[in-house]
Design a protein around this nucleic acid. Structure first.
Lengths: 338, 338
DNA sequence: TAAATTTGTGCAATCGTTCCCGACAACGTT
DNA sequence: AACGTTGTCGGGAACGATTGCACAAATTTA
């Protein structure tokens, strides 16, 4: 059906050996100009394209990197992916994206799928359900280059690129405090996630620094990170049922932020009248929201770029890299509904 | 660095030939149960994983399909991709996503990249800038299986899956008419795109059926499909500058719809007070928008699923397929701000 | 002029896997 | 006893490309 032309076809047609053709195509100095021209012309004429799979087998690398994210339909990740592609592309790497949909099982399957020599390295942002990282540790120990971004696994010793989640959370919370709110709740995703820990920490620091006490009842976790509406709704209802109902919420994720707004809309609770909200989000259309949302925006594109640069550096390193670094990029606070 | 275990290692360790090991692993009947067990046990013990690249070279297929879309950060496409993955995954195919960002040049590069035997088939939705489809035609003529979805190329004879754009556009326009608007404009992307043609046609039919005349001044094209804010803004300003200013707009794309809302917000034009809007969009958070948006929603997930099923059918067909079909799925109208 | 070097090309191995053949037992059938 | 089956297994050629080595012819050097 689809019969690609190979180096062998060229060799046969020109009465040369495959080695000569190969060398001519690669422009080696040890081929006579005449032969070289003949081969190149003929190759162009019949539209020869080298078979990347054969190359991969020989070179033992695929010139492709795998990306593991929870959802591409998430502004943060789609922006990060654009950053990833902008670098990978230039360096001649394919990018294979896989989505976990925040499921641990899918993460394991996807990672296994990407590994086994079909990708040269992995860019990983953990799913919210992931506790056990042995599937990644095992590959990392075997030498598969790996860079974490956003949701990182501290236990694995490699490069990491994250936003300054603690500072971003601090600023958002401090903004709510400065706006006069005193009972500030925190809605976040699963507790073991690095971003959850960091954002919680920033939230607590802001409260402490402003003379407010941290109330454990005000901190609610959504293990599915906003993927399930009912989960978000029930957590918010728990907050609303408290004796000392919060007057503001700091939300720690993109999907959670929009989910939160939806819940309040459905419950006919006015924002920010009855409840103020500030949350992490990278959406481009936040300005169009009603109620609007004060947001912490991460440099997603830049994070994707950096992570990819570091990964390619690992992949192409001649000797095993022992020194790893964690890059931390600042977030930006967009005040709306001030 | 990363030394994967091969069938050869197993053969050597067990004193067998690679052929026997291969057959044992593939559970052929001509291997004794004892040998089979020995091989399987040892393979499991040392964590043998077959090398998919070697397989690809041998089988002359990669078990992967390429997807060409404009942006993953577009609700329609991210939902379609979820549909694509849901099928591909089950059938053992990798999915490689590439983004054109509505650029013709990137589309050509991406398609070339995906082809050359590294994907077994292509799922394509054209970029808004694409006029010339010879890069696809050439591959299709060479026998590369290809299925179009959403933005299709009529000139290429293969399977196509689309929404009923004409009907959806008709319904949205008719809704505006029923709501009392008389001067309805149409904002759409580049004129050569299949979806633009179909949606324009539905728009015109609705006007005609309701005794309204089609006014060429009311039809504005944005070649970048909403990717460039300034372009959208200038087209809208053109509409606003008309003597008989429109009182409603039917918008033909996801990004254009949100772009349109942003422009009106920035121009302090009240929607739907000064101007009513209805548009194509698959966003999940339209309910949160202010002003809200009456939307035509496409069955994106289903379209992705169908297209993938048809593509895999083409890929795995024993004989060249000659009969192609175009599947048309109904859209849904969500009335908001009624 | 003979030896040494350069130049241009081919042979064959390699990457990991499958699969067509053929080898060679052990067994059953006339 | 001679032959055909059947069950197990190994050898080796593919798949497409690269590359170290060998080797002839052409050229330069001693």
């Amino acid at each position: 059906m689809f019969e690609p032309v190979t180096i062998k076809d060229i060799a046969k047609a020109l009465g040369l050996s495959t080695s000569t053709v190969s060398r001519a195509l690669r422009d080696t100095h040890e081929i006579s100009p005449a032969t070289k021209k003949m081969v190149l012309d003929y190759a162009k004429e019949i539209g020869y394209q080298p078979n990347p799979i054969a190359l991969s087998l020989k070179e033992r690398r695929s010139k492709s990197i795998g990306v593991v994210v929870s959802e591409v339909a998430n502004s943060y990740f789609s922006q990060a992916i654009n950053g990833i592609e902008s670098i990978a592309y230039d360096r001649g790497y394919h990018v294979i994206i896989s989505q976990t949909h925040e499921s641990y099982d899918r993460e394991v399957v996807n990672v296994q799928h990407l590994a086994s020599r079909s990708v040269d390295g992995l860019l990983v942002s953990l799913s919210s359900q992931t506790n056990d990282i042995s599937h990644l540790k095992q590959l990392h120990d075997k030498g598969l280059p790996m860079v974490f971004f956003d949701r990182v696994a501290e236990e694995i010793n490699t490069h990491k690129v994250i936003a300054n989640n603690e500072k971003g959370a601090y600023e958002a919370t401090a903004h709510l405090i400065r706006s006069g709110y005193k009972r500030i709740a925190h809605l976040t995703s699963s507790s073991q996630l690095s971003i959850s820990i960091e954002r919680l920490s920033g939230y607590e620091a802001a409260l402490n620094d402003h003379g407010l006490t941290v109330n454990a009842d005000y901190i609610k976790h959504c293990p599915h990170g906003g993927m399930i509406y009912e989960e978000t709704e029930s957590k918010i209802k728990e907050l609303l049922a408290l004796d000392e109902k919060p007057d503001a919420i700091f939300v720690a994720g993109d999907r959670l932020s929009t989910g939160c707004l939806s819940v309040f809309k459905n419950l006919s609770i006015s924002v920010p009248g009855d409840m103020a909200i500030a949350g992490f989000s990278n959406s481009d259309v936040l300005d169009l929201f009603n109620p609007s949302l004060t947001s912490v925006r991460q440099p997603a594109f830049e994070i994707g770029k950096l992570a990819t640069q570091m990964l390619i550096q690992l992949i192409e390193a001649k000797y095993p890299v022992e020194e790893f670094e964690k890059k931390v990029l600042d977030t930006e606070l967009f005040v709306r509904n001030a």
